[in-house]
Amino acid sequence: MVEAINAGLADAMADDDHVLVFGEDVGRLGGVFRVTDGLQARFGQRRCFDTPLAEAGIVGLAIGLSMRGYRPVPELQFDGFSYPALDQVISHLAKYRNRSQGAMPMRVTVRIPSFGGIGSPEHHCESPETYFAHTAGVRVVSPSNPADAYSMLRESIAGDDPVIFLEPKRRYWSRQDLALPVTTEPSDRARVARPGSDVTVVAYGAMVRVALDAAEVAERDGGVSLEVVDLRCLAPLDLDAVLDSVRRTGRCIVVHEAPRTLGLGAEIAAVVQERAFHSLEAPVLRVTGFDTPYPPATLEGVWLPGVDRLLDAVEQVLEP
């Protein structure tokens, strides 16, 4: 996935010289995850540059550059370090189009290596999506595989809206044979990642892999067919694919790493019962992280939702 994102950035920069990549350590080092590797060497220091260590300033800088006609793609180095920039996102990036009566769209894609599962110290494993998704005026997307990472990134950079692009660090080293450029479904739509008939499992980011693994096990061991829906876009939510699926399966489970209370699962469960109530054969369940601070790395394996926790929920919704 790292290579796919790197290629997405490089191709976007080659196609449009208004695309700028900047952030902490993205230049000479090529990013702490090497996502921006080689971009400065290829495109020069004007197109890919290091900034001072100042996350609010980085997003503020992107806003000003967008006003000047650029398409900035700033990187915030880790999820946990995106919070200093939250005010710039909420008060300005998300509102600028609205506050300028449409005259100043924000063509900014903020990349954030996100979520847990890589054994990092605290503040490196957060799930910040709900903070952003609750803010009108930004799109929030999260790819689950290299093809989507490339395609959704290109679409985000070329689009006319600010996008919070949450990259699942845990999937950075996942591999897929790809002939680039690749174009997948539009990034504001969910996609059925694995068709099934008994239970709809909604997931995004790294949890899609967990859901697919659980579907394998359920099929093999219990003859239960899970339909996995990869949400892809977390805001604005497009739940048509989820609702279609639930109307067929009658059962729905939402999976996310983020703490349960007021997470995206709450919103999805609410919409499913509002719009597919009569198709439901069981309550909508949430399989999530706990309402605690993200745990120390040695405990993340038991804290994060995994195949077992998901299969427990499958068992519950299938109880007669």
């Binding site: 004007r46 609010a56 300033g57 997003v59 503020g60 800088l61 992107a62 806003i63 000003g64 550059l65 967008s66 006003m67 000047r68 006609g69 650029y70 900035p72 005010d87 710039q88 008060s91 300005h92």
Partner: peptide, 18 residues
């Protein structure tokens, strides 16, 4: 909001410089 527009001016100026 107080002062949070200052980085926007810096971004705009950087664009002008580019």
């Amino acid at each position: 909001p107080i002062g949070t527009h200052a980085p926007h001016a810096v971004g705009y100026a950087l664009g002008a410089k580019f």
